[in-house]
Simulated scan of single mutants.
Amino acid sequence: MHTPVVARHVTARWLAGRNMSPEQRGDVVLMVSELVTNAVRHGRSRCTLTLTDLGGDLDIAVADRSEGLPEVQPGHGGDAPAGRGLVLVQRLGSPLVVVPGLGDKTVHAVVHLNGPAQVPRASDIVRPSSAARR
């Protein structure tokens, strides 16, 4: 499963030109890694990573070809072998927004670059081009 590794490298390169602290870049790369890992593991197919600068917010969107909705399992301890990825993303300050589709779904995590994350509006994350991919 080399997809998360590729996603981390692509994200790090994309973030290199952005005005962010090294800590914030590291957090975003970790969030991407967790979201892509979940998509590959549970979606059992290819996934699509989209990073969008929303003018002060960063939308991390990972789409996969599974209709199964992710479950946040906050009861997992630090020594559990799996199940901590979405909890980690939320602890890094990002609300999760899941946009289900017919035969797929997209999980969004939004990072507010100048403070706490903001929950995105549907108009920010539902784009006409996403329907064209189907």
Rank of each mutant, 00 (worst) to 15 (best):
G26W: 11
E34C: 05
A82C: 11
T106N: 08
A109K: 04
R41A: 09
T37M: 04
D27W: 11
T37Y: 05
A61C: 01
R13F: 15
G55A: 00
D27H: 14
L15K: 09
Q118F: 08
S21Q: 10
V87G: 06
L96I: 15
A39R: 03
R121P: 01
L30V: 14
G83M: 01
P116Y: 10
V72Y: 03
R8L: 14
P22F: 12
G93W: 10
V110W: 01
W14A: 14
P95C: 11
V111N: 07
V119K: 12
K105P: 01
V119G: 07
V36K: 05
P4C: 01
L113W: 05
R18V: 12
H2K: 10
R44N: 06
L51D: 00
S129C: 02
G93I: 10
M1L: 09
H76R: 11
G115P: 09
L58V: 01
R121L: 10
P70F: 07
A82H: 11
H9T: 15
G75K: 04
V6S: 12
G43Y: 01
G93S: 13
G115Y: 07
P22S: 14
R8P: 06
K105E: 00
V99C: 11
P70C: 06
S21P: 07
R46N: 03
G101R: 13
A117G: 14
L102I: 09
T48Q: 07
G43W: 03
D57F: 03
A12K: 14
V111D: 05
R133W: 06
A131I: 08
P128H: 08
S94C: 15
G115I: 10
L30S: 12
A80C: 07
P81M: 02
R41P: 01
S66N: 05
P128M: 08
N38M: 03
D59A: 13
P128S: 06
D64G: 00
V10A: 13
L58F: 02
G85H: 07
D79C: 07
P22E: 13
G26L: 11
G17I: 11
L92Q: 11
A63W: 06
V29W: 08
P74K: 04
D27M: 14
V97Q: 13
G77A: 02
R25Q: 15
